[in-house]
Amino acid sequence: MPSANAIPFFPTAGALALRLAPLAPLSFAAARLARSLGRRHPALFKRLGDQTGKTFLLDPTDLPFAFLLSPRPEAPGLKAVRRSSAGSWDARIAGSLAALIGLVHGAYDGDALFFSRDLVIEGDTEAVLALRNAIDNEEIDLARETAALFGPFESVALRPAHGLAALAARWTGVAFKRPERGTWE
C-alpha cells in the first residue's frame, strides 16, 4: 500500500485553470456517473442502510470546487459545486483529490489517512463510516465506471479510458484507475 506521505497534490496550474471552468458540464457527467454506479453496484445502498438519505460534501481540497453526493437508491445524485455555494450537507469528507480517489480505489486506508491528517471528516460520522465501508466493499475502478457510461460500447471504451487515466495520472499524480490486484473467484 502506498504510504500516506506520498499522496500527490493536483498541480496548481491545473487547479487555477479549473477555477474558470464552468461547472455545468462536470455536473452533467458526474450525475450520469452516479446513476450508472447505482445501477451497477446496488449493494452500495444495502450497506448504506438508513444513511442513503444523507447528503455528503466530497471536498477535494486541491481543486477549486467540490461535489455534493446524495446516494438515494431511486435517484443517486452527484453535482459539482463551488464551496461558497455548496448549501447544506450532513457530512463533509475532505482531502486531496488523489486521497479521495485512492480511497474509492482501495489504494489507501481511510483510518490511516485520518490518523495522518490527510483526510478531514466533519458532521455525521456514522454516515461517513457507512459510505466509506460501502464503497470499500464494491472494489470500484473509476476508469471502468467511466467506460460503462458508453453502454454497449463499454468494452471498446475500456482501453481508451484506462489509457486516458494513465495519461492523466502521469500529469496530475492522481491514480484514476484502480491498482491491479488479484481477481480470485
Binding site: G106, A107, D111, N137
Partner: peptide
C-alpha cells in the same frame, strides 16, 4: 475488522 481492504491487504 473496522479497517479497509487496503489495510487488510498490507
Amino acid at each position: 475488522r473496522q479497517r479497509s481492504r487496503a489495510y487488510t491487504e498490507a
